[in-house]
Design a protein around this nucleic acid. Structure first.
Lengths: 316, 316
DNA sequence: TCTGGCTGATTAAACGTTTCACCAACGAGG
DNA sequence: CCTCGTTGGTGAAACGTTTAATCAGCCAGA
């Protein structure tokens, strides 16, 4: 354990001077500062984060609370957040809110107990958590009044909707997985907007919805728009079982461009979100919040991008 | 900020007594201890982790280094590790080693700089990182001499192999994605073991391998064993393009039981690993290591489980 | 009555930084 | 020669815990 006073003793100066030289804060002659830095380097000196945190009240660590790490999108958020944090010299402490809202607030408490400087949270469906006195940014959906940044789910849905409309489809099925999710609601709303008024739209949910797809296609629906890639894959399987082929008999779209989307057959038309931009913006807001800045009054929506592939075509 | 001396002052005792009462270490009368705890509770007291870390030299935080969070298995490791850590009152700081080995050692340095008590690492393919003086456990494959715990990839492969053998297949294709990966090598070895000696086995890799599949099936191969679910999905698409159907014309298996495996058509036969058991064991070893204990001389292999689904059947 | 051994609590130092107030030296301006 | 501002550096306190050493009572046994 090389400490600051080790260096001070070696060089023959006071500990305060070493601290000043290393942090560049006080007044130290150029020459002496160089010698101190050299000695620190030679000793492999690492400042004790604990001591620094104790004195300054800042730990340099941010918390990240996520509902369920098994959702394939969240790891990407975590990764990009971690990259963005590192660029700012910060660390990321993870906490899993595992389904329940109670667990979510507990996780938040845990993090403050560990002395994090701020928190990024992807809230449980339908909740808007907050912690008094703790800088906190939310990644959710524009619908959440507390939201700080999110992908533009409505815009992404509109992209899909417009794509399908331009192909000439007139009779559409919207397939959702979970009514409670704001995100999925927004995607659906966007799809409806993108499709426009003169198109017939049916909306179905979950497993019942999946089971109903073949019958809907037989009744004339020519495109199925799912609110997630996983749902689209399940739909594809359901259709295959019924002898319906994509995109010949019916077009199919997903959402999120998960790793398996291009590997499907046919490759899935979907929309991708710029997760790194989301992470970057979240951290930008969070750091200004920590520095005592003020939260932007309105959430920021990062545009999504259409990824057209083989699963969509003009109707027969 | 309620501190320990706030409580001490309120009750009229010394700070040391409060500390003793709260940690249960020194000698404090039952009655006084109760009053102190009550007051602490009322004030919403949270001990300063920084101060504690400074004094004790233990931060209560573990580091987790992973090669690439987008690999769908790693989030599950992270999640289970986070759960196991929390049960022990520890936190998890994540670091992404993003592909390069240089980045990996840098991430390790970062973590020690932040004062973690120990590290769990999933090493880059082909590397065996270590950090002097830092308790460290590795989740990799039995082949790595430094490995601490892993799924039994060989055993999992054997499970798949035996399953296929029992169905009566005689001519098999093994499909790998990446020659460098120890994990994939082990899975292949296990498959070969499970299949036994009297069966004809061809091995192909990556995109070239994928492209060769239809021809191999036409030449008589009746089962394709992939080293990952994603690869299996890609294979399924390739076969569909060639008009080959699964499992009628050829059986197909994956590895890992990712979320999309049951949603495929046909649902994919695969093997699942007990990630929570792996995480639990990793943390068990790490905590004893931190407590000054000694590392078990040999790595622990957590058995995998066969998940038979519709993508495998007897050959025609 | 003295010794010794408990019990319950206190004192003070220490962990490694940061930071504020202070100081010595020095050259310049009057 | 005195004052003043600047430069380069030191001293010491403080952040909130933990912990070893100490101490005041008190009771039991000799």
């Amino acid at each position: 354990m090389t400490s600051i006073k080790q260096i001070a003793q070696d060089i023959g100066v006071s500990a305060a001077t070493v601290s000043n030289a290393l942090t560049g804060k006080g007044r130290v002659s150029k020459d002496l500062a160089d010698r101190i830095r050299a000695r620190a380097e030679a000793l492999g000196y690492r400042p004790s984060s604990a001591a620094r945190a104790l004195k300054t009240g800042q730990s340099g660590i941010l918390g990240l609370v996520m509902p369920d790490l098994t959702n394939p999108l969240f790891p990407r958020i975590a990764q990009n957040l971690s990259i963005a944090a590192e660029a700012r010299g910060l660390g990321i402490l993870i906490a899993d809110s595992r389904g329940s809202e109670a667990r979510q607030t507990e996780a938040l408490q845990q993090l403050v107990g560990r002395g994090v400087d701020g928190v990024v949270i992807v809230p449980q469906k339908g909740t808007s958590p907050s912690a008094p006195g703790l800088p906190l940014v939310t990644i959710n959906t524009a619908r959440d009044p507390r939201n700080t940044v999110s992908a533009d789910h409505i815009g992404g849905g509109a992209l899909i909707g417009a794509h399908i409309r331009e192909l000439g489809h007139q009779d559409i099925v919207l397939l959702g997985g979970d009514r409670v999710s704001d995100v999925q609601q927004d995607r659906m709303r966007g799809m409806a907007e993108g499709l426009g008024p003169s198109i017939r739209i049916a909306t179905v949910w979950g497993d019942n919805g999946l089971a109903a797809l073949p019958e809907l296609v037989r009744q004339g629906s020519s495109a199925i728009l799912a609110t997630s890639d996983l749902l689209a894959l399940a739909a594809l399987s359901e259709l295959a079982r019924a002898g319906i082929s994509v995109p010949e008999d019916v077009s199919l779209t997903g959402f999120d461009d998960l790793p398996f989307a291009p590997a499907m057959h046919p490759a899935l038309t979907t929309t991708a979100q710029d997760v790194s931009a989301i992470a970057e913006h979240a951290l930008e807001v969070l750091t200004t919040l920590i520095a005592g800045g003020t939260r932007p009054e309105t959430g920021h929506a990062v545009p999504m991008r259409l990824v057209p592939r083989a699963s969509t075509a003009a109707p027969r």
